[in-house]
Amino acid sequence: MIGRLQGTLLEKQAPEVLIDIAGIGYEVQLPMSSFYELPEVGAIATIYTHFVVREDAQLLFGFINQGERALFRELIKVNGVGPKLGLAILSGMNSAEFVDAVATDDVARLVKLPGVGKKTAERLLIEMRDRLKNLQGSVAATAAPSLHALEASAASVQDVEGDAIAALLALGYKPAVASKAVSKIAEPGMNSEAMIKAALKAML
Rank of each mutant, 00 (worst) to 15 (best):
M32L: 15
L150K: 14
R4M: 13
R109Q: 11
A181W: 04
L60Y: 06
A176T: 09
S192V: 03
S91N: 05
N79F: 03
A149L: 00
L85K: 10
S138W: 08
P175Y: 12
A101K: 03
G82Q: 05
L125M: 10
L135M: 05
E40Y: 13
A155F: 02
A149C: 07
L59F: 00
E37V: 06
G189T: 00
A141L: 03
Q13L: 11
A186T: 07
K174R: 14
Y26E: 07
A70I: 00
D20G: 05
Y26R: 12
L110V: 06
L87Q: 10
A167K: 00
S34N: 12
E16I: 02
L171K: 03
A152W: 03
A45W: 03
E68P: 10
H148M: 10
K201D: 10
L204K: 15
I126E: 04
L204P: 01
Q136M: 11
A164Q: 01
G3L: 08
I21F: 09
A96H: 15
R73T: 04
K84D: 04
V28R: 11
G62W: 09
G67P: 03
V107T: 10
L150F: 15
D163P: 04
G162A: 11
Q66A: 13
V17C: 09
L30W: 09
R4I: 09
E127L: 11
N134T: 11
L124H: 03
L113M: 10
A155H: 05
K77L: 14
P83R: 02
Q6V: 15
L135W: 04
L200D: 00
V182F: 02
F98P: 01
K84Q: 15
S192M: 01
A181C: 13
I196V: 14
A166G: 09
A143I: 14
I47Q: 01
R73A: 01
K184C: 02
F51L: 13
M190E: 06
E27L: 13
D105R: 08
L135D: 08
T142A: 09
L147S: 11
N79D: 13
S153L: 11
P15F: 05
V102K: 03
H50Y: 11
E97K: 04
F51Q: 12
I21D: 06
A96T: 06
R129V: 06
K119M: 15
G3E: 13
T49S: 07
G67L: 04
V17W: 09
L113Q: 06
L113W: 05
A164T: 02
G115S: 02
L87N: 06
E27Y: 05
L75H: 02
M203G: 03
L135Q: 05
V157Q: 13
M195F: 00
E37Y: 06
S146D: 12
A14Q: 08
A141C: 02
A178R: 04
P175I: 10
A140C: 05
A43S: 14
L147K: 13
L147A: 12
N65L: 02
L125W: 01
P145H: 08
G162N: 14
A70E: 06
L113Y: 07
G86V: 08
N79K: 14
I185G: 00
P188K: 00
A176S: 14
S146E: 13
